[in-house]
Design a protein around this nucleic acid. Structure first.
Lengths: 133, 133
DNA sequence: GGCACAAAAGAAAATTATTTTCTTTTAAGC
DNA sequence: GCTTAAAAGAAAATAATTTTCTTTTGTGCC
């Protein structure tokens, strides 16, 4: 059995063709929004329902397989959960890239200044990518 | 004329009572979502329309007076634009606090690693506040 | 202070996004 | 292969946001 199916099973989700496709797309594209997910799915599953997309995305979030990335001024995208990273968004071409830079410093200082115990960090930086300059 | 009206004028927005109230609330609460904005407005303007809230919020965003803060797992809030800061969200009580900690280090390093020219940073940290521990 | 007018408010309808319900289909264990 | 709980799909329902249109009002100007 291929790995994507395994991944779903580990998260207590039945490995349906639609789900396998969703996860494959997340692996392929890294970040994808509902609209693109749906139109890509339609190519392979002409009768797929948007409800199926939403239901699956929500289940995958609940099971801890993926997370929503809310981006200022843009539609949310979804991504597989992996090691901590930050998001670079190009305001020109819309591309989103992960940067695995140590965010420990900000977190540490914010924790000290605020007295909060920080569990998760969501960092999105906007600017222009090298190709758009 | 009071300062809030001045602020609106500077942003080329007519100083209507409804707008003055919205800005006052943003000043008072710091962060507020559409729902709370609406229910607070209703107390003073019983016939205010949700469309008025949305239209004004959008105009204020366009004019650069406020910005939307998209928070993972929660409704967006709006805030007056001021000096750069990050957001601390308590996952227990939902409180949102601004922390004016230098985020320059991450930005600098992300810029170096990614080759992007960064213009804006959106940093949200989730955890538990001192009162909830 | 009163007038003129563009802009804003409010009401209702329209659109878009998301969720729910219900029936049919299917993956997974035996 | 058979059973069954879970998932897919279709359609309706709900929620969120925007648009349209008419009435009202803030602002500049006299």
């Amino acid at each position: 059995m291929h790995e994507t199916a395994e991944l779903l099973k580990e998260h207590h989700l039945k490995a349906t063709p639609q789900r396998i496709k969703i996860v494959s797309m997340l692996e392929e594209y890294g970040h994808i929004n509902i609209e693109d997910l749906y139109s890509e799915m339609l190519k392979q599953f002409p009768s797929v329902s948007l409800a199926t997309i939403y239901k699956n995305i929500n289940q995958m979030i609940e099971s801890g397989l993926i997370q929503e990335v809310k981006i200022p001024k843009t539609k949310s995208v979804f991504e597989l959960i992996k090691e901590p990273h930050l998001h670079m968004v190009c305001e020109n071409c819309g591309k989103i890239e992960d940067i695995c830079v140590g965010t420990d410093k900000v977190i540490e200082e914010a924790e000290r200044l605020s007295g909060y115990r920080i569990k998760e960090s969501f960092i999105t930086l906007r600017g222009t990518c090298p190709e758009c300059r």
